[in-house]
Simulated assay, not measured.
Amino acid sequence: MQVHDAARPGFADIDWTAPWFAQFAGRGQRWQQAALTSYAVLLAEMNADAGEMRQTTGRGQRLAFIAQDDLPPGAAYEAHIAATGCVPTRHNLHDFFNGSMWFAFPRIKAALNARQSAAIDVLGVGPTRGGVRDTLTLFDENALLFACADPALSAALRGFDWRTLLVARRDAWGASCEVRCFGHALLEKLIAPFKACTGHVWIVDVPSDYFRWDAVARDAWLDESVSAALLNTDALTSRIFAPLPVLGIPGWWAENESPAFYDDISVFRAGRRAGQRL
């Protein structure tokens, strides 16, 4: 059945109190009001912030946002951003959240763009992206950043040990581990959250002092660390990621206060065979 546009979530449906949106609320609420006014006003607001921040894309070009129709015919999206600094942007939630990430984690976005455009240089734009570009796209669209100072918690995540990670060690969240949303398609889905909504986790080992820093310092550390890893990791494959159902994150959804929430094996799955590498 085709869904009428009016029934789809839009800019007015963003709940900035939700934990996955709250981290971007400062700029996001201002952009939201611009988006509700018009496409042109949204682009102007985004470009005003880009001009103030002086952010660059994957090849050192100054960041700017342009209307999707201004992307030249036949131009590859990532290659155009790298060559010109201009990010084609539609008047929709998907591109709204994509733009937000250029400000929340600018180095990560630039690193993704640098590697995507380098892969296009080598392989061109064909019917398939290739393994590295697929992995970079998966990160860009659906990643969660799992900052963790306790190897046992990272091992529980990799091993699909949901009871340890989300129930028995629940008190560790905020003290030894935490999550930041990055994927803009994932954020779009979380406009209307559902239990099976799952992110692809990039695990980031952090120092124990990390959890004594404020949010700005934490985000800056993640931005630098993850961007360096993206630029310097040769073997980028989807096996790097671990799945995590977003509504299972402690403190992020009221229903998960009950341990029974995690009994749903269609969502909190047993995972891969024992000993199989992620």
Rank of each mutant, 00 (worst) to 15 (best):
D5T: 13
G10N: 07
G10E: 05
I14S: 11
I14C: 10
A18F: 14
Q23V: 13
F24T: 15
R27L: 11
G28C: 06
R30K: 06
W31N: 10
Q32G: 03
Q33T: 09
L36D: 01
T37Q: 12
L42R: 07
A44T: 14
M46F: 12
A48D: 07
A48S: 10
A48Y: 01
A50H: 01
G51M: 00
M53E: 10
R54S: 10
T56L: 05
A64Y: 01
A67Q: 01
D70P: 03
Y77K: 06
Y77W: 12
A82N: 13
T84M: 13
T84F: 11
C86P: 13
V87Q: 13
H91F: 14
D95F: 00
S100N: 04
M101D: 03
W102P: 03
F103G: 05
F103I: 09
I108D: 00
A110M: 01
A111K: 01
N113E: 03
N113R: 02
R115N: 00
R115M: 01
A119Y: 07
I120A: 11
D121M: 04
D121A: 14
V122K: 14
V125L: 08
G126E: 04
P127C: 09
T128I: 10
R129S: 10
R129T: 02
R129L: 12
G130K: 02
D134L: 02
L138M: 14
F139N: 01
D140W: 07
N142A: 11
L145Q: 11
C148K: 05
A149Q: 03
D150L: 02
A155G: 12
G159H: 06
F160I: 07
F160L: 09
D161G: 03
W162H: 09
R163N: 12
T164P: 01
V167K: 03
A168P: 00
R169C: 03
R170K: 08
R170L: 05
R170G: 05
D171P: 03
A172V: 09
E178V: 14
V179D: 15
R180E: 15
R180C: 13
C181E: 12
H184M: 10
L187N: 08
E188T: 14
I191H: 06
A192F: 05
A192T: 11
P193Q: 00
F194Q: 13
F194D: 06
K195S: 10
A196W: 05
A196T: 05
T198R: 09
T198E: 05
W202K: 12
P207Q: 04
S208P: 11
W213N: 09
D214P: 11
D214S: 10
A217K: 15
L222V: 08
D223S: 11
E224T: 15
S225V: 15
V226R: 12
S227W: 07
L230M: 09
L231R: 14
N232H: 14
R239W: 13
L244I: 04
P245T: 02
V246H: 01
G248F: 00
W253I: 03
A254D: 03
E255N: 02
N256S: 04
N256R: 05
E257K: 06
P259K: 02
A260Q: 07
D263V: 04
D264Q: 03
V267N: 02
V267I: 11
V267T: 08
R269E: 02
G271S: 04
G271C: 08
A274I: 11
A274C: 03
G275P: 02
